[in-house]
Design a protein around this nucleic acid. Structure first.
Lengths: 203, 203
DNA sequence: TATACTTTTGACCAATTGGTTAAACTTTAT
DNA sequence: ATAAAGTTTAACCAATTGGTCAAAAGTATA
């Protein structure tokens, strides 16, 4: 039945996502995924031929999500500062709901570098630069942003939101030990990161 | 012979470090390590009883290195700004020589959270705070650094130097595609990160 | 109801892999 | 030189694991 079909196939996909996210490709076990979904292991092979296929399906979806979140910033009609604030609000909220996503993605890209090309084919820094120039010509001068410094700036912006999630094993434990609350820290970071970057950009 | 002994044991340790760093505990194979060292697989068990023991030995050494590098900053008799510049020069140079270290460490801590307690037992933010207060009382006021904001500031500082190495699979490929040079970018980051943070800290 | 088709299951298989063992080889000590 | 001790190796073992298969169960169609 198509109804039950979708249910099973979807259940498998969701369980696979959970297990692969938590354990990675190498650490994940097909039996784990089956148990997690409450079904027989053979069903995994019935719907997704192999572990590689299943992992592939999960990775493709996950990878897509990550970068879709960056584009809308440029669609909004906002000042550069407002765009930065907008970005951190959206991006950190997304990471709050998908805290393991960056680590999962980077681990897999390290394990299988062949994926990278396909993943970044949609990203064109020159295009981003053109868009920025068109939308914020004076801000680029005001903030001294050039083609040479844009990698430094963009990685710094990404670092501010992504790093806390990548380093959560350490940061989270350290904060717990010291009486801070990680979730609160993340919530506050939406504003802190924006303020930090905006101040840093000023000449 | 003790001479040859050390050679073999050390060769195993170095090969294990390389393979574990590259593949992680789950992805690493004992046979790989043996091949890498050019010896029989049984020797791994002769010197280090099990894979876990061997991994443990590697992890302990690696983990120790990472945090030893943070302490010397406070020993130097420098202004706060000079300390930040000193830190990034030292820390990024260290990471240039050990680019996989942060990813390795964080992956293992995620896989085995029990390690974390032991690892961070030496770190005491309150102690760091006291040291900062003693050395830079006026700077803390000048830069509006308080017990509440110190996690935000410290994670931001760490993010600036560590993130490029964690995200190297993406950043490196993206830069290659766009005609930037990753190593050059890292070298420049020693100064950029310091400038960035110092500007960001100002009220 | 009978038949064809799809879905699910448990038993099973072959390959991989961490680990063991006994024998061969080296080195050291007497 | 010879025995004792340490080192190295190849062959082997047992457990894990991704994957297969045929039968059973369920569903749609006639």
């Amino acid at each position: 039945m198509t109804e039950n079909d979708k249910q099973t196939e979807e259940k498998i996909f969701e369980s696979a996502t959970d297990v692969f996210m938590a354990k990675g490709m190498d650490g994940a076990r097909m039996q784990d995924i089956a148990d997690h979904a409450g079904i027989n292991k053979s069903l995994l092979h019935y719907y997704y031929r192999t572990k590689d296929h299943l992992f592939n399906a999960v990775f493709e979806k996950i990878a897509g999500q990550m970068f879709k979140k960056f584009a809308p910033v440029f669609d909004e009609n906002l000042t550069l500062e407002e765009k930065i604030r907008f970005f951190y609000r959206e991006h950190i909220t997304f990471l709050q709901n998908n805290p393991r996503l960056p680590a999962f993605l980077l681990n897999e890209l390290h394990r299988n570098p062949a994926r990278i090309k396909k993943l970044i084919q949609g990203i064109d820094i020159n295009k981003i630069w053109s868009t920025l120039e068109a939308q914020h010509k004076d801000d680029l001068i005001k903030y001294n942003i050039t083609r040479e410094t844009i990698p430094q700036l963009m990685t710094s912006i990404a670092a501010m939101s992504v790093f806390p999630f990548l380093a959560k094993p350490i940061i989270g434990s350290l904060m717990e030990k010291m009486g801070y609350d990680f979730d609160e820290y993340i919530e506050e970071r939406k504003k802190y990161a924006a303020d930090f970057v905006i101040k840093a950009m000023k000449k």
